[in-house]
Structures are given as structure tokens and as C-alpha cells.
Design a protein around this nucleic acid. Structure first.
Lengths: 235, 235
DNA sequence: GAATATCATGACAATATTGTTACAGTTGCA
DNA sequence: TGCAACTGTAACAATATTGTCATGATATTC
């Protein structure tokens, strides 16, 4: 089953050749990835901070700072350490592949490469790592939702939730202090295409509340009559 | 985690391929390690005496003396006995890994490996051993997995595991408190390329649980419905 | 306060997911 | 060669989850 709450993957491509960037972007966007382009390390840096990509495609040879140096600098910083890197190199020798990897790249690709190959590598890498899981813990009061452990707990006790309740809570904790109509909840948690009765949301809200009930005294999941539901730490 | 004050670690890399040595050196120096290179066992021997490295990366196949023999000879001498060794091997068979470990290696890595993997293993080993030591043991409650002995035990009793169950447990103990989908487990434990049914994971999980069952009362290997499996000390 | 709209709750059958076992094909080894 | 251990699959059993409905509760409006 497809995980509904997952955002589209963002891939940052850093290459000084515009043609390469365009080719990659075209290939990736048709595969459902979101593409970020940078022609040099400096632009890459700011995109990196603003957009937090899930993966980086990095040219080995760039004017100015080399891909290798850039990769190495990424590995030094805590917040970028875990982002998978695929190195792009025009050279073919074994030697170069190894140097590419040495800098901390997870994989490499030799130009010219086919888009199929590129996509295959990206997917393979994402399959192994499960993507770049940043900000893994959501918190509201004493309620914790750990995405990487896929676990919800409160005051030390684990709260057992079914898959839908988990996704529901995650959605709300990611978007607190905001009302969502049943339709919006369905679109966000169930997915756009699936059709289920709107009332179904009520039932799952109920199940979620029931699971949280023993721990939270303030009603975190609130009913907004005529509008929908809201997750809020305030009454 | 406790951050410890530590001097620069010295890592000796013994490999006849210059490219490999360079890759490793670059990767490690960017991680703050000091790197010592040797292309053969003889040079390794003198570096070993002069520099007293904290860890050795050893090629399995070298012209002249083999990595296995070299490792064994290190284990015989008092002053080198306690230096952790990671064996580098191009082979993939289980058998080879075991032979590598029997010679006294604490861990092994199959070429080609990514530098992230290498750095992760080194850090993991150093964390466990505190720099120099013989206990390369993963621990969860009373459950012990000794990598250097390739043995799992609990409360003094040895737990007999098949190769796959061992790798599975090791993977989980190295990555606890985190859910892995069946696909991710396959990619990490079986390997990226092999294709086996996802449900195969279930069966091996079952076998692993069965083997652990007599010893652990808390379910260490937990099912996360709709998401995968998780190894955790908490309920 | 009655009429009405909206939401809460519990029950239930259908479905999906996971657990468990058996078995056949391999492989290494005596 | 025969044995024993190990693997991957399929089939079936056991559970957990899901969506819907019927009915009761609560707020809103006039």
C-alpha cells in the first residue's frame, strides 16, 4: 500500500551544466520527484537550508569547489550528514568511482547515464535508507510521536494505534492549531482518490480519542461544529 | 548519548590497492581520523610498532601473506591482541565472512562499500570498544550478540541461530528503535539486488523470535502493523 | 422548548495483514 | 552418496483493522 502522508521526495541536483540539470529534472519530475536545481555549491547551500532535500545528485567536476569537497563539507555538518548523495562523474576509471565514494557519497553514476539508470539508483538508495528522515519526533505536551520508530507515547507509556489512527494523529500533529473539514482530512490522510464516507472520519477520530484518553486530560483533538476537527494544545 | 573527550583516533589501513587506501584515507580524515597506510603486511608491521593505531582495516586478499593470516598473527602477540580489526573482503559468501571473523577480526565489510558504511562501522566499533578492546558486543537487555565470536547468547546460554537469523538480529540490534518495512529489511539484510518474496521476512522473523523466545519475555522483535518490524527494548 | 442539524458511540461484517506450519529444493560436509 | 542444516514459498489459521450503519447525545435555531 502506498503511504499517503509522505510528501513528494525532493532531489537536489548540483551541476554546472545546464543541459544535465534539465535532463535530470525532466526524468525525475516524470517519476514524481520534486526537483531542485543548483549550478554551483553556493546556490546548493541555500537551497539545502531552505528546502531540505531528501537526496543530492552531485557533479564530480565543478568550477570552484569540487563535488568531492562539497560532499565532504556536507558530511561534517550535523543537519546534512544523513542526506544520501549520488556522485555524477564524467570519468570512467575505477579510480574515480572510488574517489567519489571516498568523500561520503553513497553511490555514483558515470556520465553519460540513462535516465532509467538514474531513477533506478535513486529508488534503490531510497529503499535502503527509507529516505532522509528529518525531524523524526513530533511533540505536543507530553505526547510524542516518533516517526522513525513509528511509535506514539505519552509520559513514558506506549500508546497503541492502528495504522489509520497513527496517520491521522501524525497529520494533525504536523498541522496543529488548524481546522480541517472531513473532506480535507480524507484527502490528506486517506488520499485523494479513495472514496469513503465522510462520517468515517468521525469514527476514526473517535478511535484516536479513545486511545489518547487515558493520558491526555485536555481534549487534544477538538470538534469544531460545522467546520471539522482541529488538533490543538489549547482548549 | 555521552560525548566523550577523545584524542584523534589512528586507523591503519592495510591493502595492496592504492585506490582503496586513498578512498579510505580521505573518508576517514574528513571524519577526523588520522590515517596510516600500508600496502603490505611488512609495512603494516612497522607502522603498527611505531604508531600504535586504534584500529586496523585489513584487506582479505593480499599478495604474499593473507589478511586472515595477518590478523591471526596479530592476535597472537600481546601488544596487538586488543586492536579492533575490520576485514575488507571482495567476497560475499557467508563462509568467507565467518573465516574472516574466526581469524580474529571484529567485523567485516564487503567491497564495494560506501564510505558512510565504513565510517558507521568504525564508529560503531569504537563506541563499543572504547578504542581498544576485545568485546565487540551488541547488547539489549540480557541479550548479547558478540560479533567477534559470531555468537548470540542470553543469560549465559548460547542461542543457536542460522546465518540469516544472525544477520537479521544483527541488523536490528544495530538499528534499534526504528521501523523497517519488509522491503527495507530485505535490502539491508539480504542485499540490494536479490529478489525474494517480502513474506519471506515474516518467516525469518518468526524463526528468530522462536529462537529468542525461551530467553526474552518482552517481545524484542515487534510487529508494527502496516509498517514493518522494529527491534526495541520498550514495549 | 421544540425542531433540526450535527456529532458521538457501539456493533458488525468484510477485508487486510500477519502468524504459523509444512514442504521441496539447495548446499555443505562426513 | 546420504545426511543434516538452511532457505524460500505457498497454503491456511489467527488477528487486527476498516468502513458503514443504526441509534443516542448534543448543540443551534427559531
Amino acid at each position: 500500500m502506498t503511504e499517503q502522508l509522505q510528501t513528494t521526495r525532493r532531489v537536489l541536483i548540483v551541476d554546472d551544466e545546464r543541459a544535465i540539470r534539465e535532463m535530470v529534472c525532466l526524468a525525475l519530475s516524470s517519476e514524481g520527484f520534486r526537483c531542485l536545481e543548483a549550478s554551483d555549491a553556493h546556490k546548493a547551500g541555500s537551497l539545502l537550508r531552505e528546502q531540505r532535500p531528501d537526496m543530492i545528485l552531485l557533479d564530480w567536476m565543478m568550477p570552484g569547489i569540487s563535488g568531492v569537497d562539497f560532499a565532504r563539507s556536507l558530511r561534517r555538518k550535523e543537519e546534512t550528514r544523513d542526506i544520501p548523495i549520488i556522485m555524477l562523474t564524467a570519468k570512467v576509471e575505477e579510480e574515480d568511482m572510488i574517489r567519489g565514494l571516498e568523500s561520503g557519497a553513497d553511490d555514483y553514476l558515470t556520465k553519460p547515464f540513462s535516465t532509467r539508470e538514474l531513477v533506478a539508483r535513486i529508488n534503490s538508495l531510497l529503499r535502503r535508507t527509507g529516505g532522509h528522515a528529518e525531524n523524526t519526533v513530533l511533540q505536543a505536551g507530553s505526547l510524542h510521536l516518533d516517526m522513525s520508530a513509528h511509535r506514539v507515547s505519552c509520559q513514558g507509556s506506549v500508546i497503541d494505534l492502528g495504522p489509520t489512527e497513527y496517520k491521522l494523529l501524525r497529520f494533525f500533529m504536523e498541522n496543529p492549531e488548524r481546522v480541517y473539514s472531513r473532506e480535507q482530512v480524507l484527502n490528506n490522510v486517506w488520499g485523494d482518490h479513495v472514496y469513503v464516507e465522510e462520517r468515517t472520519v468521525d469514527v476514526h477520530i473517535r478511535r484516536l480519542r479513545k486511545a489518547l484518553e487515558p493520558f491526555e486530560h485536555d481534549q487534544l483533538v477538538q470538534t469544531v461544529r460545522g467546520a471539522g476537527y482541529r488538533f490543538s494544545a489549547f482548549r
